[in-house]
């Protein structure tokens, strides 16, 4: 099913928000979920809002700790702009209270850094399939 999925299902647009180049590249490179197509990357919250406006993604992976505007505030704004957007927080779990706070703002899932490619793919599949 995975091979011909793009012809059967419309691709979902993915925006990657993370201030780490390494993480951004890893998500770009390792995401093998064929329903997803990376349409933009951003390294902070303010930039994310800008890219979000331009590309209108369906799925967003979001770091919490970033310069300019942090992920929690960004989640809140993105959900206000597009309530049906699917947001996966990808962040180091230093403090569960912060993570829960981000979820309460409207994120759909949480992936703990560091993560394996398999964990990332499973989380993305669960996000778009099980939401």
């Amino acid at each position: 099913m995975a091979r011909n999925a793009p012809f059967l299902t419309p691709q979902l647009k993915l925006l990657i928000v993370d201030d780490s180049n390494v993480i951004r590249r890893r998500i770009e490179r390792s995401q093998q979920i064929e329903q997803l197509q990376v349409v933009g990357v951003a390294s902070n919250g303010a930039e994310a809002i800008e890219v979000f406006r331009q590309t209108d993604p369906d799925v967003v992976t979001m770091d919490i700790t970033m310069p300019e505007m942090d992920g929690i505030e960004c989640v809140e704004q993105l959900v206000a702009m597009k309530p049906q957007v699917l947001i996966l927080i990808v962040s180091a779990l230093a403090d569960k209270a912060t993570a829960v706070e981000a979820m309460a703002k409207g994120a759909n899932g949480f992936l703990n850094k560091p993560f394996s490619d398999r964990q990332l793919n499973e989380a993305l599949a669960e996000l778009i399939g099980g939401a």
Binding site: L88, L93, K96, A97, A99, V100, E101, M103, A104, G106, A107, N108, G109, F110, L111, N112, A123, E126, L127, G130, A131
Partner: peptide, 25 residues
Amino acid sequence: ATTTKYVQLLWGERANEKLIRSINP
């Protein structure tokens, strides 16, 4: 307090149950 918020997430519709298990306080 975090637990209360976490359980509230489950009553809401947005959060994916499987994808928030890792932040269960």
